[in-house]
């Protein structure tokens, strides 16, 4: 999996591409939790190039969402492929991870 990071307004946008599974989840966790611990409060995860996610990836998102709650931060997701959206529906993660169509919508919603 590859990660591209950029700043847009008050948010940091992480663009994920490739596969987020047990093979790649540890590296992503280190990056994401590191950003939160360094004080990032508004995080956008752009999934437009993400091809695959398993429960290992969901686990990282849950950890990050919990940490952000403690710092009053927020994490918004966007541009999920239909079949990836379905994983979020099936797992019930949609109840605490807001999902939007595009990056701009994520930022407007902070």
């Amino acid at each position: 999996m590859e990660l591209k990071e950029r700043r847009q307004d008050q948010a940091v946008v992480l663009e994920l591409s490739g596969r987020l599974d047990s093979n790649t989840a540890d590296g992503f966790e280190e990056k994401l939790l590191g950003m939160i611990r360094n004080g990032e409060k508004y995080i956008v995860l752009d999934f437009s190039s993400l091809e695959y996610i398993s429960s290992a990836g969901l686990r990282v998102l849950l950890k990050a969402a919990r940490e952000l709650k403690q710092t009053d931060g927020k994490m918004h997701l966007c541009s999920l492929k239909d079949y990836i959206q379905e994983v979020f529906d099936l797992s019930g993660f949609v109840s605490f991870l807001p999902i939007y169509a595009v990056v701009e919508d994520c930022i407007d919603a902070f």
Binding site: S54, S55, A56, L58, R59, L62, A65, R66, K69, V87, L90, S91, G92, S95, F96
Partner: peptide, 16 residues
Amino acid sequence: ECGMHQRNVGGLGIHL
């Protein structure tokens, strides 16, 4: 159905 803080991710993979 439960909230973020009650979530236990164990068993999620097999559920999927």
